[in-house]
């Protein structure tokens, strides 16, 4: 027995933006992510330093 056909149109989950294949690849690209790792740590540290009065 096959599963019933599911049409996602008009459901909540149909409307949000979803990543393209290229975006997904960039999320796990080591070089891009190494850069992001440094950049995000810098941004987090800015928040942390501001929070310590």
């Amino acid at each position: 027995m096959t599963d019933p056909k599911v049409i996602r149109a008009y459901k909540d989950e149909y409307y949000p933006p979803v990543p393209t294949a290229a975006t997904k690849r960039m999320r796990t690209n080591i070089f891009i992510q190494l850069y992001k790792f440094l950049m995000l740590n810098y941004k987090i540290m800015r928040i942390v330093v501001k929070g310590h009065s």
Binding site: I32, Q33, L40, I44, R46
Partner: peptide, 13 residues
Amino acid sequence: GTVGEIGLSGHWI
């Protein structure tokens, strides 16, 4: 000061 990023770097952090 607001950031929202998804990626492997987030797991490393």
